[in-house]
Design a protein around this nucleic acid. Sequence first.
DNA 1: AAATCATTTCGATATTTGTCGAAATATAAA
DNA 2: TTTATATTTCGACAAATATCGAAATGATTT
Lengths: 84, 84
Amino acid sequence: MNIVFKALNDPIRREILEILKERDMTAGDISDRFDVGKPTISHHLDLLRQAHLVSSAKDGQFVIYSLNTTVVDEIMKWLLDLKK
Amino acid sequence: MNIVFKALNDPIRREILEILKERDMTAGDISDRFDVGKPTISHHLDLLRQAHLVSSAKDGQFVIYSLNTTVVDEIMKWLLDLKK
DNA sequence: AAATCATTTCGATATTTGTCGAAATATAAA
DNA sequence: TTTATATTTCGACAAATATCGAAATGATTT
């Protein structure tokens, strides 16, 4: 839970999730959407993966990232419990 | 949005929300639940209030904090949109 | 095999953040 | 009007974090 909220606590990481909602993308394509260096994006992707918010699959020299919504359900459950 | 996720990115602050779910409490009573100093809890409460996750009302020398769930809806909306 | 491309790792740095004790503020009680 | 109680503000510090350029790794192409 801790690591999920940590992963969500960054505008770039949240935007990455929104981008991946549309379609899976390579690390490079994701990086092109932002004004920060590739190492930085790589680090953000690593945090998102640690939180299981994204998953990655190697395709040749590319790494394709995709959104993983199963953890989103857990957060929503926690939030819903706050309202009950 | 940024400040809400920042506020949620701390185990103590999340536990404060869970405690306030049961009943409104004074700053001191909240502080007694944790192993950190009162200034620290006061700071956490300040962040939660900035995010509008709690509201505070002064009652004599006490300050009573209460949970505010309206912002929770916004987070859930953002999360739900991720799944659609 | 050498050169190129995609991605990550490394080392360093500036900023943010959680925490503390002491001091300040505000209300209540004696 | 002192004294006590509740809470916040202040100043400082250590740990965590986002970012960068350079180097390393892994895969493709020539």
